[in-house]
């Protein structure tokens, strides 16, 4: 089976950044794939399948995140991740009371 590393960058444009529920959505999405999925800041890289690790990134609005996937289903995984960041950018996860 062919294996490859793919990466893409996403900027957090939603008001509340990477809070608990988007972390949950990212982790749930990443967990569906065999490939390893990581999310990195310039100085830190975490396992995207761990909601707790994602939360400890504490990435606020404006942060640029790099998503890296490596494995047999890398392309599908990266597409799916792009979908989550799309929803996040549209404010799907933001709540008025969650500041």
């Amino acid at each position: 089976m062919e294996s490859s590393t793919l990466r893409n960058c996403f900027v957090l444009t939603n008001h509340q950044g990477l809070h608990m529920r988007p972390c949950g959505a990212i982790a749930a999405t990443a967990a569906r794939f065999q490939s390893s999925v990581t999310v990195s800041l310039p100085d830190r890289q975490v396992n995207a399948k761990s909601i707790l690790d994602l939360m400890t990134l504490g990435a606020p609005k404006g942060t640029e995140l790099t998503v890296e996937v490596d494995g047999p289903d890398a392309k599908d995984a990266l597409d799916a991740m792009a979908g989550v960041f799309d929803r996040l950018a549209k404010g799907d996860f933001d709540e008025k009371d969650e500041t």
Binding site: G24, A27, I51, L52
Partner: peptide
């Protein structure tokens, strides 16, 4: 939307890192 908070909690409880 509110249930999702507990969905996230459940994910933390099953988080392999934890």
């Amino acid at each position: 939307r509110y249930g999702a908070i507990f969905g996230a909690h459940a994910m933390m409880l099953t988080d392999p890192t934890l």
